[in-house]
Design a protein around this nucleic acid. Structure first.
Lengths: 210, 210
DNA sequence: CCTACCGATCGGTAGG
DNA sequence: CCTACCGATCGGTAGG
């Protein structure tokens, strides 16, 4: 809650302003999510928007506030996508595969780059806020799915060689990071969905024979 | 003869120079591996060494060359540690648990930060070189272990719900990253070795009941 | 190995 | 008096 939301009298120019703001957020998303916070300058963002760099500061207090606004939108969007999947009436394994495919394909971007930026580039305040949003929007939906699997007796809980639902969600995301990281510098050996199938299979059934 | 310091013999001079070079590499390791390439300035390194910033450029051509030299040493050190573990006469599972504990405890640092720097901060040439060193020093020893497990019939190969040995090694490392990432902003629920046991158990036996 | 600096570029802000 | 910017430049810092 920033005390920055001042008088924005309702007129047609605020319509234009909102459009510009949206354009900035979209460009910031593409650049920050592909190259990271430090590597992208405010000038690169403004150039891509057809604005001067100082004009950005009319819409966002500073570079960090822009990043945080972008990241919050991105996380909220991801939660919508994830919840659409986790609410399906399919098996836990099937929904996990869909979730991998969604995170790899639809979002395109590696959330682990965002996590790096949150941890290493942002202020403690921004870090705290985005860590919470990360838990709410990405971890919680996945953890709910793992918890469902544990209650159904399909998945091991912590006492039976598994891990608690939240830890499972983090592990799941580390698998997704792995897939996306591989895709960057290795020629794909198969389609994303085939890899997603394989990864979820390993996460659920293990690398060893029973 | 003025009080000006006399020219040191080649012998002493290169001895001292090597010591200084070592000190720079050690400081660079501590700082780069904790905070990342971009976040650390050459002045921070020189200050911590008791040198002026331009003096660094007597020992290393530029910031990147210093990072690459440090990273190569770090990777070579890690390989030595890993190979000492993989050559033991224990079960594959036991050696994997030791490897996790070693990577989490002994090295202290998250290799995923190094991977981020390699991918996002370095030049294409340095990236290429360190990616190769990464494969040789970290992936190869682990992949050899997974391959041994597959030949023994303990681990699934690609045709039976597993993954090839190299991919398994990458997956293994993504688990280690996860452990180290958790340790940064969560209170540890148990000791590192207990977590290592749990993680290897999940990787080998899966989250689902057979 | 230091003092004294450079070209450029960074994020951010001035007046109009 | 407001908005949506611009041209110019701020204080600092990057690698060298």
């Amino acid at each position: 809650m920033s005390g920055r939301q001042q008088k924005r009298s309702v007129h047609e120019e605020s319509e234009e302003a909102r459009e510009t703001r949206r354009a900035i957020l979209e460009v910031a998303r593409q650049l920050f999510m592909e190259f990271g916070y430090r590597a992208i300058t405010t000038r690169q963002i403004s150039d891509a928007c057809g604005l001067t760099q100082p004009a950005l500061y009319h819409y966002f207090k500073d570079k960090e506030e822009l990043y945080v606004a972008m990241a919050r939108e991105e996380l909220a969007r991801t939660r919508t996508g994830l919840e659409r999947i986790t609410r399906r009436g399919e098996s836990v394994e099937e929904r996990l595969k869909r979730a991998v495919a969604y995170l790899v394909g639809a979002t395109q971007h590696d959330h682990s780059l965002m996590m790096h930026d949150i941890r290493y580039e942002l202020s403690p305040e921004a870090r705290l806020q985005l860590n919470e949003e990360f838990r709410i929007n990405m971890i919680a939906p996945l953890a709910a799915l793992f918890e469902e699997g544990q209650h159904d007796g399909q998945l091991r809980d912590e006492q039976h060689g598994g891990s608690d639902a939240v830890a499972s969600a983090y592990l799941f995301l580390s698998f997704v990071s792995y897939i996306l990281a591989r895709g960057q510098h290795e020629t794909a050996t198969g389609s994303d969905s085939a890899l997603a199938q394989q990864m979820v299979g390993i996460l659920l059934h293990g690398l060893a024979y029973p």
